[in-house]
Design a protein around this nucleic acid. Structure first.
Lengths: 203, 203
DNA sequence: CAAATTTACTAAACAATGTTTATAAAAATT
DNA sequence: AATTTTTATAAACATTGTTTAGTAAATTTG
């Protein structure tokens, strides 16, 4: 009798309900303002029920963290249609900032916040998409070097430079540390910064 | 009679006691784990007393935020002894990361956390040291360009590139997003990244 | 100096949080 | 039909930041 299978299905159903509610609240209100009670109310269960499916609040947001990386990886992957690895690299820069500013809460969770990382310390965590995205970058750099399109520098150093620049711009903007510039000016500055960085890598 | 003067002095004394206790707890435990009750206990006053001197928790940490920028500006300023603006710029890069990794909690408060910014939105906030540090960077870039040491690119774009790279490295490391590299390897990668960036700016 | 007033301080309460526990209801198995 | 297992929750706990109402002390006034 498929009773255990059905129960498993039901359990998974509630789990995804929790995740859905948590994601919706989180994207609207942010991490801190998303409470366990709020999530519980949204799915019409008691708060205690959530703890039957997730160890704690951080574990829920670790799951959302993973979802974010899936979206992120998908977005970066759209650049793969571009044959020229140099132009592809340039496009990935745009896509990166696009993701960051279109999904600032996701970006926050994925690259800035400390909270979900605590859960991520434990075993069984899914760093897959994160590593995959980083590999995407490194492989593109490698290809560009091999084809003689950019200078022959250490791939990891180049990757660190690019990722740091991108994250620096995104996170400083999201966390409002670019007060010295008008908000409307920032996108243009960022575009020029990426252009310049790319030009500097060019042979 | 100097009674109002004395009272003012006493008020300022308590204020700095609060700040001192808050700073100590904060640097040891971080923002979230530093509670108003904890601060109150340390200075042997009731929690309510703190609210006679600060509007809320964020306002306390805005003050610490300012202290941090003072330390930061002081540190960056030590590079001023270097005549050559290119070498000075290079030194400032090292000093930046040194500050970040020697004072990760300060760095967090100053450049990553959202909390103290809320208080900083209001009028009367001291963005001075922050802007001063940024000016220090921009002036050094300007000088290097004028002396023909680095390429003639827009100063703001160059500043954004440099600051973003530095903050990217610092914040990704502090918030543990460089899991793909050994912790011992990171400093070397960062050094190479700064070297490369500087080389790229060079004429 | 005594009375009135202002200031300084705090105990207690409030509202909200994440999380745990003891218990009841429901479902499945025997 | 009785027993066991699963599922869900109400209520409690321990914290948090913050507010309020009331008291004690210091200062000013008459």
């Amino acid at each position: 009798m498929g009773v255990v299978e059905r129960k498993e299905r039901e359990k998974l159903e509630i789990r995804s309900q929790i995740l859905e509610a948590a994601t919706e609240l989180f994207l609207k209100e942010g991490f801190d303002k998303t409470s366990m009670r709020g999530i519980a109310e949204k799915i019409e269960y008691s708060p205690a029920t959530i703890y039957l499916h997730f160890k704690d609040k951080n574990e829920i947001f670790q799951a959302i963290h993973d979802q974010g990386f899936e979206k992120f990886f998908e977005k970066l992957s759209t650049a793969s249609v571009i044959e020229n690895p140099f132009l592809r690299l340039r496009k990935m820069g745009d896509l990166y900032l696009e993701f960051a500013f279109d999904n600032p809460e996701y970006y926050d969770l994925m690259f800035i916040m400390r909270a979900p990382m605590i859960a991520l310390e434990q075993e069984g965590c899914d760093w897959n998409r994160g590593f995959l995205s980083y590999d995407l970058l490194k492989n593109t750099i490698r290809e560009a070097i091999e084809k003689g399109l950019i200078k022959n520098i250490d791939i990891d150093v180049a990757a660190v430079m690019i990722v740091s620049t991108m994250h620096g711009m995104a996170s400083l903007a999201i966390r409002e540390r670019f007060k010295m510039y008008d908000k409307e000016l920032l996108p243009f500055l960022f575009k020029d910064a990426i252009d310049n960085l790319m030009k500097m890598f060019k042979i």
